[in-house]
Amino acid sequence: MTSILVVDDDPAVTNVLKLFLESSGYAVVTAQGFVAGKKALESSLPDAIVLDLNMPDGLGLDLLSHLRVQLQRKTPVLVLSGNRQESTVLRALEMGANDFVRKPFSPREVTARLRKLLP
């Protein structure tokens, strides 16, 4: 089964995505925050990642660059962020994110976009 890693410090986000994605047939692993996210990245090989940008214990963009540069993985990444600045979107895409969804979000939209990113 396709596995998805959701990295966000907000338990509301991880709860929602876990339920909605699982009911769409994916296996979901959640990581609360940067540190947990980093650990999850290093110890598992998810097929796709949903990543929050502003976490209290570390920046999502740092995690993204860790994935693309240090771990050299091409896992599709969907960035989920409340940030309203266009520059943030651009930076995320430049650093290797495949898609960007703003918060507040629609879980069905996130599911649909993830489906497009996966083979």
Binding site: A12, N15, V16, P104, F105, S106
Partner: peptide
């Protein structure tokens, strides 16, 4: 608190 936290992050149909 939990209900409001959920409302905060979602929009669209679920919102």
């Amino acid at each position: 608190e939990a209900l409001l936290a959920l409302r905060e992050i979602l929009h669209g149909d679920e919102g």
